[in-house]
Design a protein around this nucleic acid. Structure first.
Ligand SMILES: [Mn+2]
Ligand SMILES: [Mn+2]
Ligand SMILES: [Mn+2]
Ligand SMILES: [Mn+2]
Lengths: 222, 222
DNA sequence: AATATTTTTTAGATTAGTCTAAAATATTAT
DNA sequence: ATAATATTTTAGACTAATCTAAAAAATATT
């Protein structure tokens, strides 16, 4: 169907649209794919010919409905495999991404449906990212950045922005994990660093840089 | 390390040596890989340069120790994945091969060691084929063809020669499965077809062609 | 509005893997 | 031992994906 490489381009375009908005430049894709603009242009022609993207010379790129469906299917596989690795094979959340990058290209509908079932149809992956369903429907959760909240707000951690191993390991070491209650004890006005209490137990300081990479929802009042 | 394609050539050469013996011809590889002799020659030069095969023009091919190690690692992954699919994801034994052909190329030592552990270190795959250990050591079981046995011998089924979905489905339909006791009730002299009894229950006829594709050991006397 | 800078595309090569057709070598038959 | 046949290798070409360098187009600056 689509080659390994085509799939990676489609996924990169999807992710760029998700974070940067509407139309995506050749250079942005080149940077994300660690390749050169000339290579991207070649691939854009091919993806356009396959009706996976909307593309006109010099005008940037969007995904067609068909392209978006392909992207969501790859993301579905990626996130289900990450969940499988963490839940069943004792991988840590900072170890799964590179293996999932390979596994997401395995082509077998039965395999991915059985993995989904085996995991009991999870809604989010180990980083709190939502898993598209088999039809490509994605439930976007309405989390916000922890850095947006104020003194004495109480939140529940739902996800991360930065997925790097370094950041995830920092959270582990600090005892900050998905589902934890995060209470803001204090906000330093100067640099917007935070003093927070995790699960009413340990209190620590985190920088604004860190707070901008933690996704939370306000704790629902019982 | 080695490309997807190189891995498939190495595996094909290993399998040919296993079944045909010592040195393998260019044409034999071409047939197994569904490609042309000219393409094989090109690849042989590359594998030789990587010291994975012993090769001299017109003289046929064998694997080096290094090449054999690579082959056994791919086979280990293939068979562990097949076991995983059958044991954990409810695949049938005739459905696993094509997916395992893809999964065998996933590159992650931790992944395959965890799968092995998750399956509780199986010794054989769903077709009774032995699984090489992490060091590439393979326990070759001393099974024989059911067609070699005689009237009133009692055997235990340990494997199959033909791995095709058609043959495996035929065995399912006939109620013949790994581990079953097969007693030879009668041998037709004319065509060496057999009347057999499975697990002391149902009796049926199988052709010599079928018997030549079923691996067994003599039932150990208690 | 004209010029400078940045972005994007084209042109032309390169590498991995494949193919067909032709040449070289090995094997088999006479 | 020669000739016929089969096998294997080489030569040259193709596709997918990549690259560098140059040209074209768009954008920003004066
Ligand atoms: Mn990931
Ligand atoms: Mn990928
Ligand atoms: Mn198999
Ligand atoms: Mn394979």
């Amino acid at each position: 169907m689509n080659s390994f490489t085509e799939e990676n381009y489609i996924k990169a375009i999807y992710k760029l649209i998700e974070s940067e908005g509407d139309t995506i430049s050749t250079n942005a894709i080149a940077e994300k794919m660690n390749t050169k603009a000339a290579s991207v242009t070649d691939m854009l022609k091919k993806l356009f010919a396959k009706k996976l993207i909307n593309y006109q010379k010099y005008q940037g790129v969007t995904l067609t409905a068909k392209g978006e469906k392909v992207a969501l299917n790859i993301i579905r596989k990626h996130r289900l495999w990450e969940m499988f690795l963490v839940e069943k094979l004792d991988f840590k959340w900072d170890e799964v991404h590179d293996v999932a990058e390979q596994l997401e290209h395995i082509n077998s509908d039965k395999l991915i449906e059985q993995i989904d079932k085996f995991l009991n149809f999870p809604k989010v992956d180990p980083h709190g990212d939502p898993i598209p369903d088999a039809k490509g429907k994605l439930n976007i959760p309405k989390s916000q950045l922890l850095s947006k909240f104020n003194k004495s707000d109480v939140c529940i951690m739902t996800g991360v922005v930065d997925h790097s191993a370094a950041f995830l390991q920092y959270l582990d070491k600090s005892g900050i994990a998905l589902g934890n209650e995060i209470k803001i004890k204090d906000v330093v006005v100067f640099d917007r660093s935070l003093q927070i209490t995790i699960n009413k137990r340990n209190t620590l300081f985190i920088s604004n840089d860190v707070a901008k990479n933690i996704l939370v929802i306000l704790k629902p009042q019982p």
